[in-house]
Design a protein around this nucleic acid. Structure first.
Lengths: 228, 228
DNA sequence: GAAATAGTGTCTATAAGACAGTATTTT
DNA sequence: AAAATACTGTCTTATAGACACTATTTC
């Protein structure tokens, strides 16, 4: 038995849950309930449960459900972190998933804090560099895909969507080009009736066509938002 | 003991080792030595050894060294496959790495076969879909980065490099544009003296500048090779 | 009708591609 | 000098961006 235990790998999943609050991309953190790093903010996560989880993806979805109270967000694998030294308890491996959620869908919870991704405090384990990798990936992917729509609650207007893109990319986008690209993707359909208020012309609202609910659209040559 | 064993996750690494033979992208496979899938071609791989491997990346590098006889190729994490049903022995998790190697550096071995990625036979486990994912990733990444240089043995000429890009992308590229882009990247330096033979003007040979030996260069708007 | 934001038409700038020319080698 | 491939100059085409104009709402 001791031999098995000594050889065992600590096998977990962690979730980088990102949302936009105002114009600022934020990550959801929970204080660690036990040692190591008791009380230190950490990514929602936990061990894989082989009898319960069909796969690591299902384990991540379960973590979001049980520990954050979210069902069915956009959830994709980011990468796997592993090694002898990242967890003081032993050789550990964590399959990390990235989830995107409109702020409106995030439950209010005592044990859940939102932190701007550019102002990270000290995090447990190697979670800080994991978050930084996730943010970089989301930024890169947003340049050539419809990924940011998962941060918008439907229905949304094109000016709203553009603002979301600009927040994630960290720079402004040409309005005409943006609309050309989004139009070419053909993934949005106008929603009739509902429109927005304000002392100005209201914006047309859109929702995702059903075919694109779970599929990213790829933008031809990207949005040409250049790296700073 | 039985409880520990029942809960345990089978924790392995696998490597998709790709090389270009002629114009055809090929993957290196080895027949399984034991059940399950004994004798069936599979990706080089094996269990993580916590006492020996510093991380999953190091485990993958060790697998390449021990099982294929390759040291220090380009090696990056692809993704992690996991689940209750992918290995008949139990809940398994495999961190999969992708390695690129010039054909010239691949050792000749009895137990190593090269198979064109478009003509895959039946493979062990879910290795077929893993290879397909790796090929798609390499193709996508080649559109906007210098990834294919790792398939070229240095020094190489620009026509050679272009042929490698075209093989990986599966379509032709405009010569003038290709040279403009590669030039802009500024990652190559001409090698003097050595040139190529043939009854025609020889091509200038290049090697990677040292700064770019282990770093991918990102091509501004990509190579605009469109998906078929 | 003034103010404010949404949406569009069109010109300009930039980047990609086509094509044909020159360059350099062997036979 | 013929053949073959390397390399380059330049025109054309396609795409992105700037800018100003029209549209629609509230007050």
């Amino acid at each position: 038995m001791s031999r098995v235990a000594a050889e065992a790998v600590i096998c977990t999943v962690d979730v980088v849950l990102l949302t936009l609050r105002g114009e600022v991309l934020q990550v959801a953190l929970q204080p660690r309930e036990r040692e190591p790093f008791k009380g230190v903010p950490a990514l929602p996560g936990g061990p894989v449960r082989p009898h319960e989880d069909q796969s690591a993806w299902h384990a991540a979805a379960r973590v979001l459900r049980e520990r954050v109270g979210i069902d069915g967000p956009y959830l994709e694998q980011l990468a796997t972190w592993s090694g002898a030294t990242r967890d003081p308890r032993g050789w550990s491996l964590s399959v990390v998933y990235c989830a995107l959620l409109p702020f409106e869908r995030l439950p209010q919870r005592e044990d859940l804090q939102l932190v701007p991704v550019r102002r990270l405090p000290r995090l447990a384990f190697d979670h800080k560099s994991i978050v930084e990798t996730a943010v970089a990936r989301v930024g890169a992917k947003s340049q050539y895909s419809s990924l940011p729509v998962y941060l918008c609650s439907e229905p949304f207007s094109l000016p709203q969507l553009q603002a979301v893109y600009e927040s994630v990319l960290g720079e402004t986008i040409n309005k005409v080009s943006f609309r050309r690209k989004i139009g070419e993707l053909g993934m949005l359909e106008p929603v009739n009736g509902a429109r927005q208020g304000g002392a100005h012309r209201p914006a047309q609202l859109y929702q995702l066509k059903d075919d694109y609910r779970r599929t990213l659209s790829i933008i031809g040559r990207g949005l040409n938002a250049r790296a700073s």
